[in-house]
């Protein structure tokens, strides 16, 4: 069975993005093992001369390395992903490269009607950067708008149409992960390139 790491993109105790990932973990338990990962204890990203990375980030990196894929649920703050998530991704690409060629599914929930659309668009660009170089599932937006009203008391999505869309996208992601496993001819080179790249290099 595939194993996925699900990153909660919010550092808030009350997060419908966490709820969404919890729901996915439950709903798809027969198809994949999903482990939720929190970013809220990571400090804000800062470069240092000795390229120090906090242990907590190293632990998350190891989990991602070992996983078959990653699911990210992002809220939208000011038209983009939260600083906390941006900071986590910066740690997870600072001398370590767990995301290279890793299949990623992007989801997101928001209180308003847009469901984090702009944050997701930026997140795609970010995951495509040289030190992350994730393999993002294409053409697969999942935007959960009005997320406060979306779940029932058991934490299950209420709207059948939305459930159907999520089911379909998750099946696609499983296929995408399987196809990805056959597309690893350049993986070594890609990892090397990520290692050699630096935002600080001449």
């Amino acid at each position: 069975m595939n194993k996925f790491i699900a990153i909660v993109g919010s550092n808030s105790n009350k997060s419908t993005n966490r709820e969404l990932l919890k729901y996915m973990k439950k709903r798809f338990q027969s198809a994949a093992e999903i482990e939720l990962v929190e970013i809220k204890n990571l400090p804000i990203y800062k470069k240092s001369a000795d390229k120090y990375v906090p242990q907590e980030a190293l632990d998350i990196a190891a989990k991602i390395e070992a996983a078959d894929g990653v699911i990210i649920a992002t809220p939208e703050y000011d038209h983009s992903i939260p600083a906390a998530l941006s900071s986590a991704l910066a740690w997870l690409s600072y001398g370590i490269h767990p995301f290279v060629d890793k299949p990623v599914m992007i989801t997101g929930a928001s209180y308003g009607s847009l469901g984090s659309s702009r944050a997701q668009a930026q997140l795609r660009q970010i995951l495509d950067s040289p030190e992350l170089k994730a393999r993002i599932m294409p053409s697969s937006e999942f935007l959960l708008g009005h997320s406060l009203q979306a779940f029932d008391e058991n934490g299950d999505l209420k709207d059948e149409k939305i459930i159907k869309q999520l089911d379909g996208l998750f099946q696609d992601f499983l296929d995408f992960v399987n196809i990805s496993k056959q597309l690893n001819n350049a993986n070594e080179v890609n990892k090397q390139k990520a290692k050699e790249f630096s935002w600080d290099k001449d």
Partner: peptide, 16 residues
């Protein structure tokens, strides 16, 4: 600056 194709988390953090 640009980091991972976006603004540094520290800057976004201030704006939040």
């Amino acid at each position: 600056p640009e980091h991972n194709h976006t603004v540094p988390a520290a800057l976004k953090n201030v704006i939040e």
